[in-house]
Nucleic acid binder design. Structure first.
Length: 840
DNA sequence: AAATTCGCAA
DNA sequence: TATATTGCGAATTT
């Protein structure tokens, strides 16, 4: 048989086949997949030859092949296909006999799949959240992935590799693959060995293992950052005892009476496996007692470099703060108000932070409205040392201060604000400072007071640094904060640990591992955040609009699909419908032009960056209090730092490219709805999308995060009885045509301004108007545009600017001119400035 | 005090 | 795929 096949295929084919197999056949050490037997055979060259076709399909179904490694990329188009990905073929794994009693699968590529409907799922999920990264948590199958970071986090909350493996084994339907076991124990060996400690305003790198110390000292990058002549050996005796997290005191008291600590209590309730795990944690602490600690000092500005390097060496530097044994820094008189009771998930997240009686640095991820502030304050109340709070805007700085006063018994004088208009310090020798990221990053020249304040902040040793909206930190500017201010522990808070760039990884060494991530669905089932119905409304485009869309350039395209009249109708319909139900509605639009147009057309108040502070307050007040005003239009301004608990319905008419963070944040606006605990209450989230345009793609990208959180997006293609909406806008073809013409004019105006700029510059530069035209760019423009632009240019050059043009073409558009006047003014200024530059 | 300008983030 | 536009805060000018 074999020789015959060989003869048929010919030499060329066989050699090609052999070559192509090299990259994909599993090497030693990789888990044996369903095809590993046959590939073993093929490695013995000349024994049996396998035809190309067959080899292709082998590669296709080879779970260990790199080529088909499952990854959740940024460009996922649908959520179903990956469930059929070849790498998700489990046939290679032999299930255990009692597989149905166990809720999860573990694959060789470190992906763990959990049956969320399984009886044991809650326990398994508790455990998985600790050791693995949640990738996707839709309704039935949850997906987690073991990563170095997630294991690092697990180790840092005190789990040891042996227990992780045995617990996984217990929950898994299939045997834990050996490479997964290897990975976990490798991580466990090195993690937690190195610690970054702040002592007497000096940063020390600390380890108990002499070998690790040598390794660190030998590393060129790290020794570079060392402060020489400061090596020291100390003995430390950290003691674990039942630390009560503030706000859980009563519960803690009961537990103590029963002779159990927090962890044990939880463990006995959950399952025996977990109890063992936590027992192991306690053992560890006993061993610590008389160990010798080796440490050396590193430069303040090198902290980021060193932690990053340690991360790369697989010896991540854990930051822990033994605040109860810190006698150097003054204690802060702060405790939660006696009446305050924190919620179970808040307690859980804090127990991760204070898991071994010290404060660990890291990040807690909670959805908006789930009480992030209270978590931060509780952490501060537990540590009871100086606290510095960093927020993104002045508004949230004030909010933080108010929350501190509201939830804790701190003396209001000890909560100081450091911002452009408040530069106070606390009265005592320690306290809380609330400030913004931009205040402490200080690139520009500072006023005298500011720099004095900065010196003060820099010189101190803070017990806790609270980083609000921590996802902004990796931006180049803001990461300076970390080096600038010395804090023993850092707690990052965010709702969406997401960025569209890849800098989110940096947080692992800038702040610390993710300590806890809440499951949105679970919180909404428990009534902590509102239940939300999500829908994507597909609005068809009238043909004349679609024609223009196809012809237009990118920028104009977005204007066209946002201004789609049928979308406006849909928006109007939804507003009418929800207002009649008694909902309060927020309409979001990123495009200020569209925002203004919609709002004026539908006669609703609108709010964007340009509206003055007084007007803002007034509109928001009206929206909050008055039953007359039930709808407001917001630009990006509403994405952050606007708190409107009245809102129960949200309509999105235009959005930023594919920003998942923005989508999540917007949804967050209605999660804290006041009425969420009403019987059968539902909040609504609509995304209006023009059919068959780029918006569809953006929309699906944006939804990825929420879908992973378990939200289901319904697609609505027809709105019932939309034609019965009173005063439906753009109902006639005539109106729509006028709208389109108006739009085209405005687009024209903007474009010609920009082009005038370019040509003007070119003219100034080389004095030749005609050479300045870039052939590539021009080729794309449509003939009609060309003609118009020409005419317009002439008008500009003759000094008439655009006034005549406006009057002539759109007499009835007075309102829109306002929107652009600023733009034109700015253009004008720029033009003049550039002219001046050239003249000089 | 209000307006403008600059730098930065998304 | 990269860009353009928007928002925000600090500093400077009027």
């Amino acid at each position: 048989m074999a020789p015959k096949r060989k003869a048929l295929l010919g030499g060329a084919a066989t050699s090609k086949a052999a070559r192509s197999s090299k990259g994909s056949t599993p090497g030693p050490g990789t888990p044996r997949s369903m095809i590993s037997d046959s590939s073993d055979v093929s490695e013995n060259e000349g024994d049996i030859e396998i035809p190309d076709e067959m080899r292709k399909s082998m590669v296709k179904f080879d779970t260990s092949s790199d080529e088909h490694k499952y990854s959740i990329g940024r460009g996922i188009n649908d959520m179903a296909s990956r469930h059929f990905d070849s790498s998700r073929d489990f046939t290679a794994l032999k299930p255990k006999l009692d597989a149905h009693n166990r809720p999860l699968w573990i694959q060789g590529n470190f992906v763990i799949v959990l049956e969320s409907f399984h009886q044991l799922a809650p326990q398994a999920q508790d455990f998985l959240v600790t050791v693995a990264e949640p990738v996707s948590r839709p309704q039935f199958l949850h997906e987690y992935k073991l990563t170095t970071h997630s294991l690092y986090a697990a180790v840092s909350v005190g789990l040891n590799p042996k227990d992780i493996i045995s617990t996984l084994e217990r929950f898994s339907k299939t045997p834990v693959p050996s490479n997964v076991k290897g990975f976990i124990s490798a991580c466990g060996k090195s993690y937690g060995k190195v610690k970054l400690v702040l002592r007497n305003t000096k940063y020390l790198l600390e380890t108990t293992d002499p070998e690790v110390l040598q390794m660190l000292l030998k590393d060129p990058t790290i020794s570079e950052c060392r402060v020489h002549g400061a090596e020291q050996i100390t003995t430390s005796a950290p003691k674990m005892s039942g630390l009560a997290i503030a706000g859980t005191k009563e519960a803690a008291g009961i537990r103590e009476a029963e002779g159990l600590n927090n962890a044990d209590q939880e463990a006995t309730q959950a399952n025996p496996t977990k109890k063992e795990v936590y027992d192991a944690l306690n053992d560890d602490d006993d061993e610590d007692d008389q160990e010798v600690v080796h440490a050396f000092q590193i430069r303040d500005d090198a902290v980021e470099t060193v932690t990053k390097r340690c991360q790369e060496m697989q010896y991540p530097a854990l930051e822990e703060y033994d605040f109860r044994n810190d006698n150097i820094n003054a204690n802060l008189e702060i405790d939660l108000q006696p009446s305050t009771q924190i919620r179970p998930y808040q307690e859980k997240s804090l127990s991760k932070m204070f898991g071994n009686g010290r404060a660990k640095s890291g990040i807690i991820v909670l959805p908006c409205g789930a009480g992030k502030t209270l978590v931060g304050i509780t952490a501060a109340c537990t540590i009871k040392k100086g606290v510095i709070v960093l927020a993104t805007s002045n508004m949230s700085v004030i909010q933080w201060r108010n929350e501190f006063i509201k939830w804790s018994n701190i003396n209001p004088d000890d909560v100081a604000i450091f911002s452009s208009d408040h530069k106070e310090t606390f009265s005592g020798n320690t306290g809380v400072i609330v400030t913004t990221y931009s205040m402490v990053t200080a690139t520009q020249k500072r006023s005298h007071e500011s720099s004095k304040m900065m010196d003060f902040l820099r010189k101190r040793e803070w017990g806790l640094m609270l980083l609000d909206e921590v996802h902004v930190v990796p931006a180049n500017m803001f990461r300076k904060v970390i080096g600038n201010i010395k804090a023993h522990s850092k707690l990052g808070l965010t709702a969406t640990l997401l960025r569209e760039d890849d800098k989110i990884e940096d947080l692992n060494f800038l702040i610390g591992p993710k300590l806890y991530e809440a499951n949105w669905m679970e919180l909404s089932q428990q009534g902590h955040i509102a239940r939300v119905q999500c829908a994507e409304v597909w609005c068809p485009m009238p043909t004349e609009f679609y024609d223009e869309y196809l012809k237009a350039a990118t920028r104009s395209r977005s204007l066209l699909y946002v201004m789609n009249p049928l979308k406006m109708q849909a928006c109007q319909y939804l507003i009418t419908y929800h207002e009649s139900r008694g909902d309060k509605i927020i309409v979001f639009s990123d495009d200020v032009y569209a925002l203004e147009f919609y709002a004026r057309k539908l006669m609703k108040p609108y709010l964007y960056g340009g509206t003055s502070n007084a007007e803002r307050q007034e509109i928001l007040q009206r929206f909050r209090d008055s039953s007359e005003c039930n709808t407001i239009f917001l630009s990006k301004i509403g994405d952050t730092s606007l708190d409107l608990p009245e809102a129960t319905c949200l309509i999105q008419i235009s959005a930023q490219y594919g920003s998942r963070r923005q989508e999540a944040q917007r949804l967050g606006r209605i999660l804290r709805a006041k009425r969420r605990n009403d019987e059968g209450f539902n909040a609504f989230f609509y995304s209006l999308v023009s059919k068959d345009t780029q918006e569809m793609l953006f929309s699906s990208k944006r939804q990825a995060f929420l879908v992973d959180q378990g939200y289901a997006f319904k697609v609505i293609t027809t709105l019932h009885n939309i034609e019965k909406t009173p005063n439906l806008c753009f109902a006639t073809a005539q109106e729509r045509r006028e709208l389109l013409l108006g739009l085209l004019d405005d687009m024209e105006k903007n474009k010609s301004q920009a082009e005038y700029e370019r040509e003007n510059n070119a003219l100034m530069a080389d004095g030749n108007l005609f050479n300045s035209k870039k052939p590539g760019a021009r080729a794309k423009a449509k003939p009609r545009t060309m003609v118009r632009r020409g005419a317009h240019l002439l008008a500009d050059l003759s000094g008439g600017q655009d006034m005549a043009y406006v009057e002539q073409n759109k007499p009835a558009r007075g309102k829109k001119k306002v929107a652009h006047s600023d733009f034109f003014k700015k253009q004008q200024r720029d033009k003049e400035r550039r002219k001046k530059l050239v003249d000089e």
